[in-house]
């Protein structure tokens, strides 16, 4: 059972605290996504699990074993890097088999295992090519192949899709999800893209400023964000968040309502506003309104809603979809 348990992990460079006491359990076979803005510590956390980065204090357990100070290669992990980090001077075959060749496994065994993995990843016809001669998606698959061959208990992914174009990215999201279903291994995946987190994760860990903001299933985070930060980070377009007087009128510190939970009407509603800008996305329409007493408000409505700039409209929150936070600030 390859559970990954982090116990009160701290990390500091000099007097700067990067990680401030992270405790977390990733269950066996779970697809867990670390998400957060850049500089939140998500990559550092992943690198500490891999052993590429040392921990200042705390414990890391993989499969019940304390690996806090173990060599990266002794932790039963494999990692896919953002840049793929394929060895440019080696062929695809040698790249995938590199770890086994370091371990001095017999040639025949390496050959067989590389062959099998290449087949699953549809790389068989590319085995003798150098990484330079591969497309982005193919390189990505080689990197995954190199991870699979280690037969790891835990796969670590460090923003593996951020170098791909949008179309390939959504294709690779599907491939990775399929791979997870097939391998049933524990996977920890770092991204700054909340769409990747929402679409792929069993469990999302939202990090901010070296702390965990919230842990939960994608829809839990969407429906019940624990803080204004999570509320603003998960979901697109962003949730409308208000503090100060506007929030005080709703009886809280921070008041939030998602664009898709606003109904617009020409005649009456809770708020009265003027249409400032319209984004027509086809299926949807994103309306930017200037509302008296609130400021900017973004609303999402069906794509064929008639609307013109400068028009006066009334907006109302959908009942039960409002978020009222007693603490926290707009990030």
């Amino acid at each position: 059972m390859a559970r990954v348990v982090l116990e009160n992990i701290c990390k500091s460079f000099g007097s700067v605290d990067i990680m401030k006491g992270i405790s977390l359990t990733v269950e066996d076979g779970e697809f867990c996504v670390f998400v957060g803005p850049s500089g939140c510590g998500k990559s550092t956390l992943l690198r500490m699990i891999s052993g590429l980065e040392t921990v200042s204090s705390g414990r890391i357990l993989i499969d019940g074993e304390d690996v806090t100070y173990a060599e990266p290669s002794r932790r039963g992990i494999a990692m896919v890097f953002q840049s793929y980090a394929l060895y440019p001077h080696l062929t695809v075959r040698e790249n995938i088999g590199f770890g086994l060749s370091l371990a001095r496994r017999p040639k025949a065994e390496i050959e067989e295992r590389v062959g099998k993995i290449a087949e699953t990843l549809q790389l068989s016809h590319l085995l003798d090519r150098k990484p330079k001669a591969l497309s982005g998606g193919q390189r990505q698959r080689v990197a995954i192949g190199r991870a699979i061959i280690r037969d790891p208990k835990v796969f670590l992914f460090d923003e593996p899709l951020s170098n791909l174009d949008a179309a390939l990215r959504s294709q690779m999201r599907v491939e990775l999800t399929d791979l997870h279903a097939k391998l049933k291994a524990t996977m920890i995946y770092v991204t700054h893209d909340q769409v990747e987190a929402m679409t792929m994760a069993d469990k999302i860990v939202v990090l901010n400023g070296g702390r965990i903001e919230q842990v939960g299933a994608p829809m839990t985070l969407y429906n019940e964000p624990a803080s204004p930060f999570v509320a603003g980070f998960i979901g697109s377009p962003k949730m409308n968040l208000y503090d100060g007087d506007a929030a005080a009128r709703e009886g809280c510190m921070v008041y939030g309502i998602r664009p898709e939970h606003i109904s617009l009407s020409a005649t009456d509603g809770k708020w009265r506003g003027t249409v400032r800008h319209i984004e027509r996305l086809g299926a949807d329409l994103i309306a930017h309104l200037t509302v008296d007493g609130l400021g900017d408000l973004v609303a999402r409505c069906p794509g064929d809603t008639p609307m013109v700039i400068g028009e006066t409209l009334f907006a109302s929150p959908v009942a039960g979809k409002e978020h009222k936070f007693e603490r926290g600030a707009i990030g």
Binding site: G51, T54, Y69, A70, E71, P72
Partner: peptide
């Protein structure tokens, strides 16, 4: 319990 050695 040994600290991870530098790869360099």
């Amino acid at each position: 319990m040994s600290r991870t050695k530098s790869p360099y």
